[in-house]
């Protein structure tokens, strides 16, 4: 595995491309969007398979329900909109019509986190992992690169029951080559440094890997754990790394309340209590700016991770 910093692709793009491929193999796959298909990248599927694409207009709550109805006929609906309109606006529809009845609906929410950038706080969803993680029956994923996202799309199409997959707007480096093996519910350990473990998810995985390189140059050996499955979380890898390394740091483009950091703390506080430092958005809303500027502003970029490892 070698991170390719030259070639960047947003996970929403990977999603759109993979849907087209999957749609060709499986005619049960139906894609729904709420007037954002050019942004969520489901437009590619719409073009290829117009009979299996439903654009409901700006009506996310309705979209969730329609997906449920389709699923009762054996369809595999993928619903897409921005994370704030999926997990936020349509929360009750997800709770009562999808999670509670265990409906076979895949919610693929793009534009999560402050890396949405210029649109600002109203569009920067920072609570979705928290909201979705708390729902019984719901499985929650957040993928870090193109290869992993394409694997995840196929994987969740085979899982029976609801899945929330968090995707991003920002183009990020390709971390994994095509030979990489992924397993649902299993974190990926990158490196075996013992000075610290950086647990990351989604866009922050590449930031953690950049930090790992910088720290290596300063004689500090850290490992990165990529948690693509937030729920069920890989408890074993977290406990193993807590035992083997001196520090645990979590980093996410999400509120520090209820997301990856909280999930890691829940595991460790019950099974292997150690100090955990959580990097993330600290109980505030986002703001407008360039994605990379915001990663730095909210202290979840590579430099901030380096500083945390060296000084916390």
């Amino acid at each position: 595995m070698k991170m390719n910093l030259d070639k960047k692709i947003a996970t929403r793009q990977s999603y759109g491309e993979k849907l087209v491929e999957l749609g060709g193999k499986n005619t049960d796959i139906i894609v729904l969007d709420a007037d954002l298909s050019s942004a969520t990248k489901t437009a590619m599927f719409a073009k290829e398979y117009p009979d299996r694409f439903i654009n409901v207009g700006i009506a996310e709550q309705n979209m969730m329900g329609i997906a449920v109805g389709l699923s009762t006929f054996g369809k595999i609906p993928f619903v897409s909109t921005f994370a704030v309109f999926a997990a936020g606006r349509a929360y009750d529809q997800i709770r009562n019509s999808i999670a509670y009845p265990n409906s076979n609906v895949k919610i693929c929410a793009t534009h999560a986190g402050v890396t949405v950038g210029e649109d600002g706080a109203t569009h920067q969803m920072l609570e979705d992992l928290s909201l979705m993680r708390t729902l019984p029956n719901m499985k929650v994923m957040c993928t870090s690169d193109d290869t992993q996202t394409k694997w995840a799309i196929e994987e969740i199409s085979k899982i029976k029951g609801p899945v929330y997959l968090r995707l991003c707007r920002l183009a990020t480096p390709i971390i994994y080559d095509e030979q990489q093996k992924f397993e649902f519910g299993k974190g990926i350990q990158i490196g075996d440094g013992t000075d610290a473990t950086i647990v990351a998810t989604g866009v922050t995985v590449s930031e953690a890997l950049k930090a790992q390189e910088i720290l290596k140059g300063r004689g500090i050996q850290v490992r990165v754990v990529d948690i693509h499955t937030i729920k069920p979380i890989d408890e074993d890898i977290i406990i193993k790394c807590a035992k083997e390394t001196k520090k645990i740091i979590t980093v996410e483009d999400h509120s520090i309340i209820g997301g990856l950091g909280s999930a890691v703390c829940e595991v460790l506080s019950e099974r292997y209590p150690v100090k955990v430092k959580r990097l993330g958005i600290k109980d505030s809303f986002g703001k407008s700016g360039k994605a990379q500027e915001l990663l730095n502003y909210f202290k979840i970029d590579a430099d901030s991770i380096v500083e945390c490892v060296e000084h916390e």
Binding site: I54, Q61, N62, M63, M64, G65, I66, A67, V68, G69, L70, S71, T72, F73, G74, K75, P77, D92, Q93, R95, N96, S97, Y100, P101
Partner: peptide
Amino acid sequence: DMTTGSLGQGLSVAVGMALAS
């Protein structure tokens, strides 16, 4: 045929069923 309770949601589900049929 459908779990309901939170008002306003059933018609969307019915629409999804009708589309699937």
